[in-house]
């Protein structure tokens, strides 16, 4: 039992330590370690976990780790996998944080950071446009997206409220749409 938990922890520790960008970057390693070497589950199962993880709150790679850990060893397995994914981040980021804060006033670091900020802005623009292409399909999506943009730029409405309200709105609008489609399809 303890041996398998340690195996889960170390497996996901390695995952957290080598995958840049998280999420789908882990998939090839999961395929090799879990499907081919350990034969715990099929690749389809892992892909299902990814699909469901995107529909759940939280960080996708942590969610996938918890699913796999839970399947193997229930709650202790889930905890081992989750702590495994985050342990390397805690170590690496703490070190970088202290390096960065001690060199922050260095003139070269300042020039570099100022250009990096511009680069980060471009990366975010790319993310936003990719999300818009994938997730906004109709006029409802466009209006909702613009409304949220307006609310977050010009008011102090909390993002938590926005998330709850738009989830409810999506469910209601979709239910009304399918409801009226069904009614329209019925013979009079």
């Amino acid at each position: 039992m303890a041996g398998e938990l340690l195996d889960l922890y170390l497996l996901f520790f390695r995952m957290g330590a080598v995958t840049f960008g998280g999420g789908y970057a882990m998939l090839p390693i999961l395929r090799r370690e879990i499907v081919q070497k350990r034969r715990w589950m099929s690749e389809e199962e892992i892909i299902d976990y990814y699909a469901v993880s995107q529909g759940l709150p939280g960080i996708i790679s942590v969610n996938v780790g918890v699913f796999i850990g839970h399947k193997q060893k229930k709650v202790p397995g889930a905890l081992a996998a989750a702590f495994g994914v985050v342990s390397p981040c805690i170590i690496i980021i703490s070190v970088i944080y202290f390096l960065l804060s001690s060199f922050q006033d260095n003139v070269y670091v300042r020039h570099a950071l100022s250009a990096i900020t511009v680069c980060v802005a471009a990366l975010i623009l790319d993310t936003v446009l990719a999300m818009a292409r994938k997730g906004i399909k109709d006029i409802f999506g466009i209006v909702l997206c613009l409304a949220v943009l307006y609310l977050s730029l010009f008011t102090s409405v909390s993002p938590i409220l926005i998330i709850i309200a738009s989830g409810l709105l999506g469910a209601v609008v979709q239910a009304l749409k399918t409801g009226s489609a069904m009614k329209g399809g019925q013979p009079k």
Binding site: I124, M131, A132, G135, L144, L149
Partner: peptide, 13 residues
């Protein structure tokens, strides 16, 4: 259906 556009708007802001 509602969350995707909303999250896009949040990140855009």
């Amino acid at each position: 259906y509602g969350l995707r556009p909303a999250v896009t708007g949040l990140i855009a802001a």
